[in-house]
Design a protein around this nucleic acid. Structure first.
Length: 494
RNA sequence: GCCCCGCUAGCUCAACUAGGCAGAGCACCGGAUUCUUAAUCCGUAGGUUGCAGGUUCAAUUCCUGCGCGGGGUACCA
C-alpha cells in the first residue's frame, strides 16, 4: 500500500469524508468558459459586464480568514486569485472548503473583480472539486529543486517550476516552427523505420533488439539518413523526418542516448544551399521565438542576422599546428597532440586524432555562428568528394555558441565510390562500420545530386531556451531504475 | 568505465570541521480571524539521517562496500 492511500494520510481522510457526504472526489467533466490567461487578458470587459466566468485548474494556495478565504488557481501556467465568501457560497459549501487540499483540481464559477490591492480575482459563487489530490505538492516558496525528483516526477516539476514549463512549451513551438519552415519550402514529412535490420548513417553503437517472428536481430536506428536518401532516389525530391535516434553511448550535458533529430534532403542541391538553409532557419526560429535574430546562450549573445563564419577544417587546423594535417602521418599527429597537451591514447584512429585536434585547437575557440567545413575525406563515408580537393569532402557542421548542432553534406551519389568508401571503412576496422548493399543498389538506380542536413533538435531547444543541459529539454530523461522499496513497484509477473 | 561531490521530516535546508538526546521554515493536523497573498497569531504532530556492515560506552558525524543522482573525464562522423 502506498503512503498516499493509507488511512492515516490526511488527504485520503478528506477524500473518504467527501465520499461519505455524497461528493464525488473525481468528477466527470467541467465546462469552462475561459482559461486563466483569458480572464486576465479580458479582465476589463469581463468585470465591467459582470460576466459569470467558469475556470478550472489546480488549487495552489488557500488562506482562511474566518468567513472569507483566498486562494490561487493555476491553469496552464497562469495563476488567478479566488475570493471565497461564506455568504456567497452558502454555509454548507463553505464548510466543505476545509476538505480541500492544495493540489486539488477544481472548477469555479463567479464574476471577475479586483481586490483592494489590485489583484485580478474571481468572486467565487460555486466551487466544484474535479479531482482530489492525495499527495502533498512540493513546498510553495522554495519549490522543487531536487534534480532527481524533477526528472523522475516531471509532472511535479511542471506544476511547480514555471521555467521548466516554459522550456517544454518553447520546445513544442520550435518543432512546429521547423515543420512550418520546411513545409513552406516544399518539403514533405515522411516516416521511416525505427527498427532497422542494419544500422547506418552515422558512426555509433546501436541498441539491439530481437524480432521474434522474423527471428532476427534488429537495431534501433542511429540515423534515418540511408532511408531518406532512398526516397530521393524514388523521386520524393524534398523530404524530412523529425524523429528520435538512439545511440548506445555515454550521456552528458550535450548527449542523450535517445535524442531527436530532424534530417532533410533536397534533390538538385549541394551543401552550399544547405548552409543557406541553416542560416535562414536559425534566423526564422529566433525571430519567431524571441522577436529578433539573436540568441543568448550562457551569457554569450549570438547575432544571427549576418552570414555565418566559414571555417575550413584542414586550413584552420593547419594554421594552429603550422603544418598540413593531411600530410602528417599518424605518428606525427600523435606528436602534435602531445605538443599541445591533448590527451590521446596510443592506438587512436586517424579519424579520431584529426577530430580531437580540431576540437581542442579550433572548435573550442569558435564563438560566432560557424560552419566547420570541408573535412578530410576519411571522416565521413557518405559525403561527396570535394570538387576542388580530392582529399576532402563537401561537408559542414553548424556550430553555435561553441555547440555542434548538426551535420550536412553534398551527398555522395556515385554507387561505385560509395561501395569503396564503405569497404575502406571496414578495412580500417572502424567500430560499428557497416556496408548496406540495399542502399548501394538504390544508388545504382541513380540518385540526383542532393544536399542533406541533420540538426539535433534537443540542442536547438537548448540554444533557444538558454538551457545548458540536454536533460532539461527532455521531458523524461533516461535514468537508472531505482531499487524498489519493499512492496512497491515490483513486477506482478516476471 | 574512471575521478570528485551529494543523499537528514512531504518540500527547502541546519546539525558533520573536533562523535555526545536530530533541529528550523513551509506544508500537514486542531483553534482564532470577513480584502489576504511566502497572510498572521496560538497549539500539536511529523525521522530506519539512501542501504548494508565496521570502529566506538556512544555514529547524521569516522571507516568499508553497495544504490541513486550531479559535475568532470573517457566514449560519441
Amino acid at each position: 500500500m502506498s503512503q498516499a492511500t493509507e488511512d492515516t494520510n490526511p488527504q485520503r481522510a478528506k477524500h473518504d469524508k467527501l465520499k461519505e457526504l455524497g461528493v464525488r472526489p473525481y468528477a466527470y467533466r467541467w465546462d469552462r468558459t475561459h482559461s486563466a490567461a483569458e480572464v486576465v487578458e479580458q479582465f476589463d470587459a469581463l468585470s465591467e459586464a459582470k460576466t459569470e466566468v467558469s475556470l478550472s485548474g489546480r488549487l495552489m494556495s488557500r488562506r482562511e480568514h474566518g468567513k472569507t478565504q483566498f486562494g490561487h488557481l493555476q491553469d496552464a501556467g497562469t495563476r488567478v486569485q479566488l475570493y471565497l465568501r461564506k455568504d456567497a457560497l452558502g454555509d454548507e459549501p463553505f464548510e466543505r472548503l476545509g476538505l480541500l487540499d492544495i493540489g486539488d483540481i477544481v472548477g469555479v464559477r463567479g464574476e471577475m473583480f479586483r481586490t483592494r490591492t489590485g489583484e485580478i480575482t474571481v468572486n467565487v459563487r460555486e466551487l466544484v472539486l474535479l479531482a482530489k489530490s492525495l499527495r502533498p505538492l512540493p513546498e510553495k516558496f522554495h519549490g522543487l529543486k531536487d534534480v532527481e525528483t524533477r526528472y523522475r516526477q516531471r509532472y511535479l516539476d511542471l506544476v511547480v517550476n514555471e521555467d521548466s514549463r516554459k522550456v517544454f512549451v518553447a520546445r513544442a513551438k520550435l518543432t512546429a516552427l521547423v515543420r512550418r519552415f520546411l513545409d513552406g519550402r516544399g518539403f514533405i514529412e515522411v516516416e521511416t523505420p525505427t527498427l532497422q535490420p542494419l544500422y547506418g548513417g552515422a558512426a555509433a553503437e546501436p541498441f539491439r533488439t530481437w524480432y521474434k517472428v522474423l527471428e532476427q536481430e534488429m537495431y534501433l536506428r542511429i540515423s534515418d539518413e540511408l532511408y531518406l536518401k532512398r526516397l530521393i532516389v524514388g523521386g520524393l525530391d524534398r523530404v524530412y523526418e523529425l524523429c528520435k535516434d538512439f545511440r548506445n553511448e555515454g550521456l552528458d550535458r550535450t548527449h542523450s542516448p535517445e535524442f531527436t533529430q530532424v534530417e532533410l534532403y533536397q534533390a538538385y542541391a549541394d551543401y552550399t544551399e544547405m548552409m543557406a538553409l541553416v542560416e535562414e532557419l536559425f534566423r526564422f526560429l529566433a525571430v519567431e521565438l524571441h522577436g529578433k535574430p539573436e540568441i543568448t546562450f550562457q551569457g554569450r549573445t549570438v547575432d544571427l542576422s549576418k552570414p555565418w563564419q566559414r571555417v575550413r577544417f584542414t586550413e584552420a587546423l593547419a594554421e594552429r599546428i603550422e603544418a598540413d594535417p593531411l600530410e602528417l602521418s599518424d605518428k606525427m599527429l600523435l606528436k602534435v597532440a602531445a605538443r599541445f597537451n591533448i590527451k590521446v591514447e596510443e592506438g587512436t584512429s586517424r579519424v579520431k586524432l584529426l577530430d580531437k585536434l580540431f576540437e581542442a585547437l579550433v572548435q573550442d575557440r569558435l564563438v560566432e555562428p560557424s560552419f566547420v567545413m570541408d573535412h578530410p575525406k576519411i571522416t565521413c563515408p557518405l559525403a561527396k568528394e570535394h570538387r576542388d580537393d580530392p582529399r576532402l569532402v563537401e561537408r559542414f557542421e553548424p556550430v553555435v555558441a561553441g555547440m555542434e548542432v548538426g551535420n550536412a553534406f553534398s551527398e555522395l551519389n556515385d554507387p561505385v565510390e560509395q561501395r569503396q568508401r564503405f569497404a575502406d571503412q571496414l578495412a580500417r576496422h572502424e567500430e560499428f562500420a557497416t556496408l548496406d548493399e540495399d542502399y548501394i543498389a538504390a544508388l545504382e538506380h541513380g540518385m540526383p545530386p542532393t544536399g542533406g542536413l541533420g540538426l539535433g533538435v534537443d540542442r536547438l531547444v537548448m540554444l533557444f531556451t538558454d538551457t545548458p543541459a540536454i536533460r532539461d529539454v527532455i521531458l523524461f530523461p533516461q535514468l537508472r531504475v531505482h531499487a524498489a522499496p519493499s512492496g512497491e513497484g515490483e513486477p506482478i509477473a516476471g
